[in-house]
Computed example of a mutant assay.
Amino acid sequence: MIIHRLGEENSLLNKFVAEIRDVNIQKDSMRFRRNIERIGEILGYELSKALSYKSKLVETPLGSKEMSLPNDELVLCSVLRAGLPLHQGLLNYFDAAENAFISAYRHHRGDEDAFEVIVNYFAAPSLENKTLVLTDPMLATGKTLENVLKALKKHGTPRQIHIISVIGSSLGIEHITEVFPENTQLWIAAIDAQLNNKGYIIPGIGDAGDLAYGEKL
Rank of each mutant, 00 (worst) to 15 (best):
R31W: 10
E178K: 12
K198L: 10
H4I: 08
A124I: 09
M138H: 05
E9H: 08
A50S: 13
A208K: 06
R38Y: 15
I3P: 01
K150N: 04
G63T: 14
N24V: 15
I118L: 11
D95G: 05
H162C: 07
H175N: 11
Q88S: 12
I173K: 05
R34W: 11
E128L: 05
V117Y: 09
S29R: 15
S64G: 05
K154E: 15
T131K: 07
R109M: 00
V75A: 08
V17Q: 10
N10R: 14
I20H: 09
V119R: 01
L51Y: 09
G168W: 02
T144D: 01
Q88T: 09
H87F: 15
Q194R: 09
G199A: 02
A100C: 14
Y121I: 01
L80H: 07
K27G: 00
L51W: 11
S52E: 12
F101A: 14
I39T: 13
I25M: 04
I176G: 06
Q194H: 08
L149T: 04
A50H: 14
E37S: 14
S11A: 10
G199N: 01
M30I: 10
D111E: 14
L12W: 10
I36W: 03
G40N: 11
P158N: 05
S11T: 14
N196R: 08
T60M: 07
I118E: 01
E174N: 06
I201W: 04
I164A: 15
V179P: 02
G204T: 08
T60Q: 07
G209R: 05
P137V: 03
S169Q: 08
N99L: 12
R159Y: 07
F16M: 13
R34L: 13
L6C: 14
T135D: 03
G156E: 02
E66Y: 11
A50K: 15
G83T: 07
A189Y: 02
L74H: 04
A140M: 08
A124V: 12
N147F: 03
L43W: 04
T157N: 04
G206E: 11
S169P: 05
P70F: 09
R38F: 14
K154D: 09
E98L: 09
K143P: 02
S169K: 03
Y213K: 10
K143V: 07
S11G: 13
A100D: 07
E98G: 10
G83I: 08
H107Q: 02
Y200F: 09
Q185R: 11
I176T: 04
S165D: 06
F32D: 10
P125F: 03
Y213I: 03
D207E: 11
S169V: 05
A124P: 03
N24Q: 11
R21C: 02
I39G: 12
A151F: 04
N71F: 06
N196M: 07
H175G: 06
R159D: 01
I2W: 07
N35P: 06
S78R: 01
E41V: 12
T177C: 09
M138P: 07
L74Y: 01
T135R: 00
N147C: 04
F16L: 15
F94K: 06
L91S: 14
A190F: 06
L76N: 05
V119W: 00
Y121V: 01
E112L: 10
D113F: 10
S55E: 08
D136N: 12
E215T: 13
P85T: 10
Y45K: 13
L127F: 09
D113W: 03
I3F: 04
K150G: 00
L91P: 01
